[in-house]
Measured scan of single mutants.
Amino acid sequence: THFTSQQLQELEATFQRNHYPDMSTREEIAVWTNLTEARVRVWFKNRRAKWR
């Protein structure tokens, strides 16, 4: 999946605040970024792996 810079900005900003967002937070992010909750969940999983 290719993310727009706007989507990445929103995802990264949320990641800085919370590395493990809950389901409702992921659903909110999905609405803001026009992505599915599953895409958001996978992005956070991959981002945490990169962060370690």
Rank of each mutant, 00 (worst) to 15 (best):
residue 36 T to G: 04
residue 9 Q to T: 08
residue 18 N to G: 06
residue 14 T to G: 10
residue 33 T to K: 01
residue 35 L to H: 04
residue 20 Y to T: 05
residue 40 V to S: 00
residue 13 A to E: 10
residue 32 W to D: 09
residue 26 R to A: 03
residue 41 R to N: 08
residue 31 V to L: 14
residue 29 I to W: 02
residue 4 T to K: 04
residue 10 E to A: 15
residue 13 A to C: 14
residue 45 K to Q: 12
residue 3 F to V: 06
residue 43 W to E: 00
residue 28 E to P: 00
residue 44 F to L: 02
residue 49 A to K: 14
residue 46 N to C: 14
residue 6 Q to M: 10
residue 36 T to F: 04
residue 9 Q to D: 09
residue 7 Q to R: 03
residue 30 A to M: 03
residue 46 N to D: 10
residue 1 T to E: 12
residue 52 R to Q: 09
residue 20 Y to N: 06
residue 9 Q to Y: 11
residue 10 E to I: 15
residue 45 K to P: 00
residue 21 P to I: 03
residue 36 T to Y: 03
residue 43 W to Y: 02
residue 33 T to L: 15
residue 48 R to W: 04
residue 23 M to D: 05
residue 14 T to S: 15
residue 5 S to H: 12
residue 15 F to Q: 01
residue 10 E to W: 15
residue 2 H to E: 12
residue 32 W to M: 15
residue 5 S to A: 13
residue 5 S to I: 13
residue 34 N to F: 06
residue 6 Q to K: 12
residue 39 R to Q: 15
residue 32 W to H: 14
residue 51 W to Y: 09
residue 31 V to Y: 13
residue 36 T to N: 05
residue 26 R to V: 10
residue 46 N to A: 11
residue 20 Y to S: 05
residue 20 Y to I: 02
residue 27 E to L: 14
residue 50 K to L: 13
residue 22 D to P: 06
residue 34 N to A: 07
residue 7 Q to H: 04
residue 6 Q to L: 11
residue 41 R to K: 09
residue 50 K to S: 09
residue 22 D to I: 05
residue 37 E to Q: 05
residue 11 L to M: 05
residue 21 P to T: 02
residue 16 Q to L: 10
residue 36 T to D: 08
residue 28 E to M: 14
residue 27 E to N: 12
residue 5 S to D: 12
residue 23 M to I: 09
residue 23 M to L: 14
residue 34 N to P: 02
residue 34 N to E: 08
residue 37 E to M: 05
residue 48 R to Q: 06
residue 19 H to G: 04
residue 45 K to T: 08
residue 30 A to L: 02
residue 20 Y to D: 04
residue 39 R to H: 11
residue 40 V to A: 00
residue 21 P to A: 06
residue 43 W to L: 01
residue 27 E to D: 06
residue 17 R to H: 09
residue 6 Q to E: 12
residue 5 S to L: 13
residue 13 A to R: 13
residue 4 T to A: 03
residue 44 F to Y: 07
residue 25 T to L: 11
residue 6 Q to P: 05
residue 42 V to P: 00
residue 16 Q to V: 08
residue 30 A to K: 01
residue 1 T to L: 12
residue 22 D to W: 03
residue 44 F to P: 00
residue 1 T to D: 11
residue 2 H to A: 11
residue 45 K to W: 08
residue 44 F to E: 00
residue 50 K to C: 09
residue 40 V to C: 00
residue 24 S to C: 12
residue 40 V to E: 01
residue 1 T to A: 11
residue 5 S to C: 15
residue 30 A to C: 05
residue 46 N to W: 15
residue 35 L to N: 05
residue 37 E to W: 04
residue 5 S to Q: 13
residue 35 L to I: 06
residue 14 T to Q: 15
residue 12 E to P: 00
residue 2 H to F: 11
residue 9 Q to F: 10
residue 40 V to W: 01
residue 20 Y to K: 04
residue 31 V to C: 14
residue 26 R to G: 01
residue 42 V to W: 14
residue 43 W to N: 00
residue 17 R to A: 09
residue 27 E to Q: 14
residue 7 Q to A: 06
residue 40 V to N: 01
residue 39 R to S: 14
residue 39 R to G: 09
residue 34 N to D: 10
residue 3 F to W: 07
residue 8 L to F: 05
residue 10 E to L: 15
residue 15 F to C: 03
residue 3 F to P: 05
residue 39 R to Y: 09
residue 24 S to M: 10
residue 33 T to H: 07
residue 13 A to D: 08
residue 19 H to T: 04
residue 32 W to I: 15
residue 47 R to A: 05
residue 16 Q to A: 11
residue 16 Q to D: 06
residue 41 R to T: 06
residue 16 Q to I: 09
residue 44 F to V: 00
residue 26 R to H: 02
residue 18 N to W: 07
residue 49 A to Q: 10
residue 4 T to V: 03
residue 39 R to N: 10
residue 24 S to T: 11
residue 27 E to A: 12
residue 9 Q to C: 14
residue 18 N to M: 07
residue 27 E to P: 01
residue 38 A to K: 12
residue 24 S to I: 12
residue 49 A to G: 06
residue 36 T to S: 09
residue 39 R to M: 15
residue 17 R to I: 11
residue 26 R to Q: 03
residue 11 L to S: 01
residue 38 A to P: 12
residue 24 S to P: 11
residue 34 N to H: 09
residue 30 A to T: 02
residue 18 N to D: 07
residue 15 F to N: 01
residue 5 S to K: 13
residue 41 R to C: 07
residue 50 K to F: 08
residue 52 R to T: 07
residue 49 A to T: 07
residue 19 H to R: 12
residue 46 N to S: 08
residue 11 L to A: 01
residue 7 Q to E: 03
residue 22 D to E: 04
residue 28 E to T: 10
residue 6 Q to T: 09
residue 30 A to P: 02
residue 23 M to Y: 14
residue 11 L to C: 03
residue 29 I to E: 01
residue 35 L to M: 09
residue 27 E to T: 12
residue 22 D to L: 04
residue 36 T to L: 04
residue 30 A to Y: 03
residue 22 D to R: 06
residue 45 K to E: 12
residue 38 A to H: 11
residue 16 Q to H: 10
residue 12 E to H: 04
residue 3 F to D: 02
residue 17 R to Q: 10
residue 47 R to D: 01
residue 28 E to V: 09
residue 48 R to T: 03
residue 24 S to G: 09
residue 37 E to C: 05
residue 19 H to D: 02
residue 16 Q to G: 07
residue 31 V to S: 12
residue 4 T to W: 05
residue 44 F to S: 00
residue 34 N to Q: 10
residue 29 I to C: 04
residue 47 R to F: 03
residue 48 R to Y: 04
residue 41 R to S: 09
residue 17 R to P: 01
residue 7 Q to K: 04
residue 21 P to M: 03
residue 42 V to L: 14
residue 33 T to A: 07
residue 35 L to P: 00
residue 48 R to V: 06
residue 23 M to C: 07
residue 39 R to T: 14
residue 27 E to F: 11
residue 25 T to P: 00
residue 34 N to W: 05
residue 42 V to E: 15
residue 44 F to T: 00
residue 6 Q to D: 10
residue 13 A to K: 13
residue 13 A to W: 12
residue 43 W to A: 00
residue 20 Y to P: 01
residue 40 V to P: 00
residue 51 W to H: 14
residue 51 W to S: 07
residue 22 D to M: 05
residue 30 A to D: 01
residue 48 R to D: 01
residue 50 K to N: 08
residue 11 L to E: 01
residue 42 V to F: 11
residue 6 Q to I: 11
residue 2 H to P: 12
residue 17 R to E: 08
residue 46 N to M: 14
residue 50 K to G: 07
residue 18 N to E: 06
residue 5 S to F: 13
residue 16 Q to T: 08
residue 7 Q to F: 04
residue 22 D to H: 05
residue 8 L to K: 06
residue 7 Q to T: 06
residue 29 I to M: 04
residue 2 H to R: 13
residue 17 R to N: 09
residue 51 W to C: 13
residue 32 W to E: 12
residue 9 Q to N: 08
residue 44 F to A: 00
residue 1 T to Q: 11
residue 34 N to T: 05
residue 7 Q to P: 01
residue 51 W to R: 05
residue 52 R to I: 08
residue 47 R to S: 03
residue 10 E to V: 15
residue 40 V to M: 01
residue 29 I to K: 01
residue 21 P to Y: 03
residue 21 P to L: 03
residue 31 V to D: 09
residue 43 W to Q: 00
residue 8 L to D: 05
residue 38 A to G: 08
residue 6 Q to N: 08
residue 23 M to T: 08
residue 11 L to G: 01
residue 40 V to L: 02
residue 7 Q to I: 07
residue 2 H to K: 12
residue 14 T to L: 15
residue 41 R to D: 08
residue 22 D to C: 06
residue 37 E to S: 05
residue 32 W to L: 15
residue 10 E to C: 15
residue 21 P to G: 03
residue 7 Q to W: 05
residue 1 T to P: 12
residue 33 T to S: 06
residue 3 F to K: 04
residue 34 N to I: 04
residue 25 T to A: 12
residue 26 R to L: 10
residue 44 F to D: 00
residue 23 M to G: 05
residue 25 T to D: 08
residue 36 T to E: 06
residue 20 Y to C: 13
residue 4 T to G: 04
residue 37 E to D: 03
residue 43 W to G: 00
residue 17 R to F: 09
residue 16 Q to S: 08
residue 17 R to S: 08
residue 44 F to H: 00
residue 51 W to G: 07
residue 39 R to E: 15
residue 30 A to W: 04
residue 52 R to K: 11
residue 51 W to D: 09
residue 30 A to Q: 01
residue 36 T to P: 07
residue 38 A to F: 13
residue 1 T to F: 14
residue 8 L to R: 06
